[in-house]
Design a binder for these strands. Structure first.
Length: 563
RNA sequence: CGGGGCGUAGCUCAGCCUGGUUAGAGCGCCGCGUUUGGGGCGCGGAGGUCGCCGGUUCGAAUCCGGCCGCCCCGACCA
């Protein structure tokens, strides 16, 4: 490709409203342009990156037996009513009517569609297992699109769906996707990890997410050697806390106006972890429940919801005053509500609210002084340990997820088969997503430097940017033309900067766009017989460059060594 | 949905508080010349319904009201 005829609108300054690095650089480099909130166009160079990512994903899903197909974005609402998601999802699902007034939706994923097709076509156990997938636009009316292409309302996703006879078959399909996904993210050249994740409200029996660590990430991941989990579900050993000596019985202390853990701990000269924090919540089946965690810990609402087995809301102040005690001074002792005690609260003497104004209790011992049930409901903190190793918590972008659906969709949509005994059985399903746009953004975030983007070679828009100096007609420019043809002939993707621009401008643009290798042909190259070669990652000059004679061979060899 | 901010040339912004010639700058763009290994220089030029609608006023980019759009933080994210 010749840069002189490429639609590559670059900008010297980042757009005023761009905060995230990938957002700034992808716009500046001419890869993407915004059309509306959460709506982005991919310009030619950006689309090449997207397509390269798509192709890698396609190859690896094909390799585990996936069969590519395509399903519509516009769908009858009836399907979604049958699966129960039409009402369950809420305003994130785009809903519209066709000219006859029929309810339609814009699909946010394709479980319903694919399940209906399989339900119609699959009859026998002999038709299973099956992996179907497609790359298709997803529509989600996100409450808050952000950071360029990181969180948008319309995006392309690879989603595959596995169909198996039984849970063992599902596990096998799931494991095959793990193999494929691990290979995909390795090939893409990203830093990544696979983490345990929440299965969400729609049920299912297991899930992992593929996370790319980077500053603009919206998720938090807890990491230790041989451990990686989304903070939403992470569990770890709490750091120990020094507790005061026990008392024969709990006793009152006056704490006028001290309503926070910090204030009470400071007044009593105790670490915050020597207090217990009460967090009253209300759920539909259980009603009011007092969740109790160590004073220096926080409740993890997702873990709590999973422990409760149903959604909950924090109790209102009037509910607390009425049923328990004055807000700010509540505690489990004598409270007429069930207590759910966090696993990290070890036996010992704690300080709690006394359920009376301006009063706390000390020497409170769980079990002796109040009954409780147990669950792991706290958010892990940096420094907690897993197998003795302290964890760290990092931001990351979710670039893929794999999910055991079980019979969540096959049931309501009637996807069944006849087993060897002629008995009708539900099909066991899994679903597996990958977002190419997020992968592109994550790669930008992970490898960019002060000059611009530095693509991993697997997904760079071009392999090589060839900078031709001098005007058309000069020997150095003509030499660049020759090299351009040679490199293209051996199958490299070459972007030839043949513009009549100053060298500085060409170099700056090349570094902004971030192709892995830059070759420069000017008078110097003709004089020395060596072409300068700069490796984009780290802006390293390749020692001695590459020879002007036999360039293609030398470049191909250099190319293989690049990240 | 709650909080904050922004909307003036292709981009980044000034002007608005305190209304008043023909609305400005830098970059980019076009032409000519020059330069050619890190966004060089000179001369000339094009480009704006000041987001939209209404109001106040002799007069509105500027003041007032409504609407629309966009960004950030939070909530949310099957």
């Amino acid at each position: 490709m010749r840069l002189s005829s490429l639609f590559l609108p670059t900008e010297r300054q980042p757009p005023a409203d761009a905060e995230a690095l990938s957002h700034q650089l992808m716009v500046r480099a001419g890869l993407i342009r915004q059309l509306g909130s959460g709506l982005w166009s991919w310009l030619p160079a950006g689309w090449r990156v997207h397509q390269k990512i798509v192709q890698i994903v396609r190859e690896e899903i094909d390799a585990i037996g996936g069969q590519e197909m395509l399903m519509p974005v516009l769908q009858p609402a009836e399907l979604w009513k049958r699966s129960g998601r039409y009402d369950a999802i809420g305003p994130e699902l785009f809903k519209l009517k066709d000219r006859r007034g029929a309810d339609m939706v814009l699909a946010m994923t394709h479980e319903e569609a694919v399940t209906v097709h399989v339900a119609q076509a699959v009859r026998s156990y002999r038709d299973l297992p099956l992996i179907l997938y497609h790359f298709q636009t997803k529509e989600r009316d996100e409450p808050r699109p952000r950071a360029g292409v990181l969180r948008t309302r319309e995006f392309i996703m690879k989603d595959s769906y596995s169909f198996d006879r039984d849970p063992e078959g599902l596990q096998a399909s799931y494991d095959r996707h793990i193999v494929a996904y691990d290979r995909i993210f390795d090939r893409l050249g990203l830093e990544w990890y696979r983490v345990e994740s929440d299965v969400g409200m729609m049920g299912g029996s297991g899930a992992h997410e593929y996370m790319a660590p980077c500053r603009a990430g919206e998720n938090e991941v807890a990491l230790a050697p041989a451990y990686a989990a989304n903070v939403e579900v992470a569990s770890a050993e709490a750091q120990p806390v020094e507790l005061p000596a026990g008392l024969a019985a709990a006793e009152e202390v006056t704490t006028p106006g001290l309503t926070t853990v910090e204030q009470v701990a400071a007044r009593l000269g105790l670490p915050e972890g020597a207090l217990l924090k009460a967090f009253p919540v209300v759920s539909e089946r259980r009603g009011l429940v007092m969740v109790v965690v160590r004073g220096d810990h926080r409740v993890n609402e997702i873990k709590l919801q999973n422990a409760l087995g149903e959604p909950f809301r924090p109790a209102r102040e009037d509910e607390i005053s009425e049923r328990i005690g004055p807000p700010g001074f509540i505690g489990p002792v004598g409270a007429d509500v069930p207590v759910l005690l966090d696993d990290a609260v070890v036996p010992g003497a704690y300080v709690t609210g006394a359920n009376r104004p301006d009063t706390h209790l000390r020497g409170v011992e769980p079990g002796r002084d109040f009954p409780f049930s147990r669950a792991d409901v706290r958010r892990v903190e940096p420094g907690d340990t897993v197998d003795g190793h302290p964890i760290r918590i990092e931001p990351a972008i979710e670039v893929g997820n794999i999910f055991k659906l079980g019979t969540r969709y096959s049931g309501p949509l009637g996807a069944t088969y006849l087993d060897v005994n002629g008995k009708e059985q539900l099909i066991w399903m899994g679903s597996y997503g990958i977002g190419p746009a997020r992968i592109a953004a994550a790669a930008v975030e992970q490898f960019a430097d002060e000059k611009g983007i530095s693509w991993p070679k697997a997904i760079a828009p071009w392999d090589v940017e060839l900078v031709g100096l001098g005007k058309p007609g000069t020997p150095e420019f003509e030499a660049a033309e020759v090299i351009y043809r040679e490199l293209t002939a051996i199958g490299l993707d070459v972007l030839f900067d043949d513009r009549p621009a100053n060298p500085g401008e060409k170099f700056a643009d090349a570094e902004l766009l971030g192709c892995p290798l830059r070759l420069t042909i000017g008078k110097r190259a003709l004089e020395s017989g060596r072409i300068e070669a700069q490796v984009r990652r780290g802006l390293v000059e390749h020692e001695g460059g590459v020879p002007l004679e036999g360039t293609a061979e030398a470049v191909a060899e250099l190319w293989r060594s690049l990240p």
